[in-house]
């Protein structure tokens, strides 16, 4: 499957979405990224039982932090998809990229550039 997805998406591979840390997510914003999403397995299908559920809660935590800081919480999201769903992966990448494009550049990056 040679599926196309936006080249601006940088993939960081982890053994399980449960391995995502709140700090990974926050540091990305600190470094000026415009958005982050976590792609985990379908709920109920986690090889480690609850990794993807934990990832979702961490994403929600970071959403609250962003909100407190006056940054759109939509800049971070959790998606669930199966590893057999290549087209879905590409679709999410396009969908999230569109969402972030609408939100515009991260206010952190903008302030730093100014």
């Amino acid at each position: 499957m040679r599926l196309q997805y936006p080249t601006n998406v940088r993939v960081i591979q982890l053994p399980c979405s449960g391995r995502v840390d709140i700090l990974h997510l926050l540091r990305s914003f600190e470094d000026g990224v415009d958005g982050v999403y976590v792609a985990g397995c379908m709920e109920g299908d986690c090889h480690f039982l609850t990794g993807n559920l934990k990832a979702r809660r961490k994403v929600e935590y970071v959403q609250k932090v962003l909100e407190s800081l006056g940054i759109e919480p939509e800049r971070i999201a959790m998606y669930n998809m199966s590893s057999a769903e290549g087209p879905r992966f590409a679709e999410v990448a396009r969908e999230f990229t569109e969402r972030i494009k609408e939100l515009g550049p991260s206010p952190i990056a903008t302030a730093q550039a100014a």
Binding site: L26, E30, V65, I108
Partner: peptide, 16 residues
């Protein structure tokens, strides 16, 4: 400490 410091840095960067 890491989480709070990161959040504070984001706030500061945002405020320039």
């Amino acid at each position: 400490v890491g989480i709070l410091a990161s959040a504070l840095r984001i706030a500061r960067k945002k405020a320039g």
